[in-house]
Design a protein around this nucleic acid. Sequence first.
RNA 1: GAGCGCGUAGCUCAGUCGGUAGAGCACGUGACUUUUAAUCACGGGGUCGUGGGUUCGAUCCCCACCGCGCUCACCA
Length: 493
Amino acid sequence: MNDAKSSNTFRDRRIEKMEAFRRDGGDPYPARVLRSDANRDLQKEFAGLAPDTVAERRAQVAGRIQSIRNDGMFIDIFDGTDRLQLFTDLKTAPPGIKTVLKALDLGDFVGASGRVRRTRRGELTLNVEAMTLLAKALLPPPEKYHGVTDTELRYRKRYVDFLASADSRQILLTRYKLISAVRSFLTSEGFLEVETPILQPLYGGATAEPFRTHHNTLDMDLYLRIAPELYLKRLLVGGVSDKIFELNRNFRNEGLSTRHNPEFTMLEVYQAFADAATMMDLLERMMAFAIESATGATLVKLGDTEIEIKPPFPRLSMIDEASRALGVDFRNESDVAKLRSPVASKLKQEVDKQATWGELVALVFETRCEAKLIAPTHVVDFPADISPLAKRSAADPRIAERFETYCFGMEIANAFSEMNDPLAQRRILERQVEAARHNKDLNKQVDEDFLEALEYGMPPSGGLGVGIDRLAMIAAGVSSIREVIAFPTVRPI
RNA sequence: GAGCGCGUAGCUCAGUCGGUAGAGCACGUGACUUUUAAUCACGGGGUCGUGGGUUCGAUCCCCACCGCGCUCACCA
């Protein structure tokens, strides 16, 4: 893989060309740009223009050269909105235009002005009356037909991927439209977007390995947050608003996969005086709205599988599904000792001796059921012992007031009626820290400040977390999280 | 972390049962000129991922390493 500065005949030729252009009095990187119309707007405005006719209207356009045909007679430019064809009659072109044409290569940015017309072949075209080089590209774009397909190059040099591939751009566009739609949906529902620390002195709100960093002046270790949850709950205590959300980056120092990136975008929503059921309804409406806004349809497709994102989503009981998948009755048998060995033998894997009832249920569910949930599905009946920040069900203390939502076999949302009993929360968090120490993780600490906040009283609230990257994968119909991240984490060479 | 696969021109890819390599696009020169993956002719371009080993000879076989992908594990 050549780096940009290494000797490269393509680059050398372009630099020579640029110097020749300078000698002719041209500026390859002018400061001023004139542009009256975006290509998309012209395409729209002249959609009805008949073939082989010239409009009265003049336009000034700009864009990157995607294709040059007939020695510059036809040039396709792309300006971030749409393509447009430029036409220059080489026989009659004035010297000014010819000087610019001589300097051009694929990938350069040019500006042009002239009359709009539609060619005999039906292509909307600008008859060039003046042309300016706007920015010289020193490196050539990738192959014009196949673009870049080498995955390594695509992820390492995303700018090359995007400039060469409309598909790659479209995927990212879908992601950003989705995010924008999520924000406007929540705002229209009366939620306030808030911000909480990404640099945290203690990490919590999820179980994951954090990234560590250090503040020099305070001489203090800090963690990049693995979740914003504990700070958002402090805001609920403070009563800044009864409905809040944060949509931002979390960081987890775990493995990379097609579904995991070390930094990922998470939405967390909290609503005071509400519960998990409120969140379920909110999530369904939000997903339907966001996906339709981002894609123009409620139907999404991944490979050959097509599903509709349309509320209400079906619900499944995690306990019943796990029981059914393994032929073990988790609902009526809570004695871990009696469950461990049948689970281990049927899953054909070892089961941790410390595993709790809920951990067994979750293990079975994750290995046997999760991947099969293709259409959006809420999984309810979550064991309480794997839900440290959720309230317990009044009907069955083994179960938490919690659900997770799955789609295309991925977990995309997690919600509960938030635990707001400070003493119960303390017992749970202290036990977690103990367990972490048992596993030689000495960094895990109880967040005393969070517990103190709870002691001032947190309103009963529903909370919802949504993996935005995964939602974007669903909207865009891609199977790797890297496709929906502009610059995914890659190993440096 | 484990298994499998991949790495050849700027890009997309062939290929050599071991004798230092080809095509298309892109690039250069010329022709043509209302094309749209423009066309035609000619030409330049390669440490065949890196380092070792086997061999008279390695891009090809073997080993190690680097990078990437997939699957599994990990990851509530």
